[in-house]
């Protein structure tokens, strides 16, 4: 089948897109609030980014440039698959360069290159409810959100400190949005949490299986939960990237042999590559850390 002929632009029919856009508008109006939406079955499995794909499909226009990453990389299988999907069904331009993209769909990472105004970052979210593993009932967690009844989340952090001496949550680290809603930042490492705060780009979150959309409008206050005497600390690496030398960025550990050999390289492949290839324009200083 020639897909473009069979399916609507960006796969979803216009009615569905309108439904999703309405949910997005509500989500933007109430930052951090989970808006239920009538998630559709997509041609990729639930849990593989259907929420993100639906959000992307609803915001994508013909003149957009799309970047898709998974684990920070443009070339992981699922990122390739989703990028191909939109190339086929929407025919939009795609890129691996963060700064060239207008829409970036991501799973588990925020690019190292700072985002700018006008860009949209779409997160794929498996479990949107930050309280889910403390309270499995949707009826109860929705009430807790409505009443801003978030003591339980701090109990969890308290337990971490009591047991380990520090908060032992390393990813999907809960945040408070604009002083009101408790939000799951999706399973991004807590290293990325500070990038969400006052971000100039629009951040949209789609959970397909759980049928929820939420959003952070540009320049929204996003605070990682903590205690006064145990403040939030992003993960730090005690070394730089073995390939490009960058420091203060998130690293992947690559096992190189079965005798304990390993190396640490940038998780953000575009960032790493653009530091190693001759500059398209003026490159930043070799060890300059983007914030």
């Amino acid at each position: 089948m020639s897909d473009a002929a069979v399916y609507n632009f960006a796969y979803l029919d216009e009615q569905t897109k309108r439904m999703i856009r309405r949910a997005l508008l509500k989500a933007v109006a109430i930052p951090g609030y989970q808006v239920p939406f009538a998630s559709r079955e997509m041609p990729m499995p639930y849990g593989w980014g259907t929420g993100g794909v639906q959000v992307t499909a609803a915001v994508l226009g013909a003149d957009d440039t799309l970047k898709v990453i998974d684990q920070g990389a443009d070339d992981t299988t699922n990122a390739v698959s989703i990028r191909k999907f939109f190339e086929r069904t929407a025919g939009v331009a795609t890129t691996t360069h963060t700064s060239d993209a207008t829409v970036i769909q991501t799973r588990h990472r925020i690019p190292e290159t700072p985002l700018r105004e006008g860009q949209i970052l779409v997160y794929q979210v498996p479990i949107p409810e930050p309280l889910r593993f403390l309270e499995p009932r949707e009826t109860e967690t929705r009430r807790q959100h409505a009443l801003e009844d978030y003591g339980l989340m701090h109990v969890k952090l308290y337990e971490d400190i009591a047991r380990h001496g520090h908060i032992a949550t390393t990813y999907a680290y809960p945040v408070k949005v604009d002083g009101r809603y408790l939000m799951d930042p999706s399973p991004t490492p807590k290293f990325d949490n500070p990038k969400m705060d006052m971000c100039p780009a629009l951040q949209l979150f789609g959970a397909g299986r759980e049928k929820r959309i939420y959003a952070l409008p540009p320049y929204t206050r996003v605070v990682s939960l903590d205690f006064e005497d145990h403040p939030f600390e992003p993960t730090k690496f005690d070394r730089g990237c073995a390939l490009c030398g960058a420091e203060g960025i998130y690293l992947d550990e690559v096992v190189t042999d079965d005798c304990g050999g390993r190396m640490f390289v940038c998780s953000d492949t575009d960032f790493c590559e653009s530091r190693r290839t001759p500059p398209r324009a003026a490159a930043p200083g070799l060890n300059e850390v983007p914030r």
Binding site: G47, W48, D70, Q71, G72, T76, T77, N78, R107, H108, R109, T170, Y171, A172, P187, T188, P189, K190, F191, T235, Y250, L251, D252, E253, S267
Partner: peptide
Amino acid sequence: LPHYVDFQAE
């Protein structure tokens, strides 16, 4: 699917 970013953090 790859989870190595989260796994790295853990």
